[in-house]
Design a protein around this nucleic acid. Sequence first.
DNA 1: GTAGCTTCCGAACATTCGTTCTGTGTCAGC
DNA 2: GCTGACACAGAACGAATGTTCGGAAGCTAC
Lengths: 199, 199
Amino acid sequence: MALNTQKPQLDPQYLEKLQDYYSEHKVIPSYSVLAGLWGISAKSWVSECVKRFEEAGFLDWTPDKQLKPGARFFERKLADSTVQAGLPNPAISDGYDLITIDDWLVKIPSRTALVRVKGDSMIDAGIHEGDLLVVEVQPNANVGEIVVAIVDNEFTVKYLQKERNEFVLRPANKAYPVIRPKGRLEIFGVMAGLARRTR
Amino acid sequence: MALNTQKPQLDPQYLEKLQDYYSEHKVIPSYSVLAGLWGISAKSWVSECVKRFEEAGFLDWTPDKQLKPGARFFERKLADSTVQAGLPNPAISDGYDLITIDDWLVKIPSRTALVRVKGDSMIDAGIHEGDLLVVEVQPNANVGEIVVAIVDNEFTVKYLQKERNEFVLRPANKAYPVIRPKGRLEIFGVMAGLARRTR
DNA sequence: GTAGCTTCCGAACATTCGTTCTGTGTCAGC
DNA sequence: GCTGACACAGAACGAATGTTCGGAAGCTAC
């Protein structure tokens, strides 16, 4: 006997279609538009579905009672490589975790900044030009960490190292020289992750 | 004599308040809420201001005539990283503030999956073990693209290449061999980006 | 069978939406 | 002092919104 799941069913395709719509327009549509999007012809049924998505945490309401994305709206499925059984159909298998990329990358939102990477001086550390560096903003760092420092009023991403009791910035690319700052080394923050877009 | 600027004035504070509202709720509010937000007591005037923001490219309309963020909505005021003295406020990515990292990486949510990278066979492409690969799920790909293929019931990330009219999977690491699949090559999707956590 | 769910449709309805139109106060230019 | 912009307020109005309710199918269980 199957145990009572308690939760009413909700069509994952509905959520996907709404997510696609949102990612295109950056707005949640009205019930009548949603009806068209989902192939439903009764607003009353849309209302019911919305309620379920709300209870599941995918949708929410503004203080002004307008529909908005909920906490779990931006979750993505994480395909587990080991448990894959031949079938390329992702809809069926249950081997998915759901996570949001932002939550995974950013631990302390208030102290986190994003910096666009310029140049290829850190290529050997797998940091490419155009990457978005996730930086935890703090005024100091440990030797060996990848830091974002401010040199000549510009951001620089480098390894932090020590050389004869002085801090130096070492690139991860033999074509670039080690930077030995004259005065105090000004650190903007420490690398906590990165995001890259390739398509 | 000043030349006629043509463009009517529009209060930058209005835009900022709307951006703040949006970044909190991820939705554009109605005219009456906007009126409250802007300290205006006539919807007619809100309508006029919206028109101006629309003409300036900050707001736009969905095909269903709903108000939505325009192309320039996510622009940042130039708090440029290069001109910054001392402590910059989180000077982000070139003039643009992202809604979320997720939004930057994922274009079609319903066809996007995340795959955890195993091994270092793509290290020369800047793909490290443990990285989260953003994959657009599709059954075929172009030569030269980085694909996620299913080989022996496991996900493999490799370059897709052609060799004597046969598809092969080439790693980006000289220590690994080229994979020449026996039968049909089963492609799970194409790499669209990646996320890495280093801390 | 029939009883009880669940899924979905359709109409009715008050509320809210955005537009339009008129009116008021202020400032600039002549 | 008059005129014309411009920035806003306020009312009026049809259209669109989301909710409620009643009912028609379909499936399951007994």
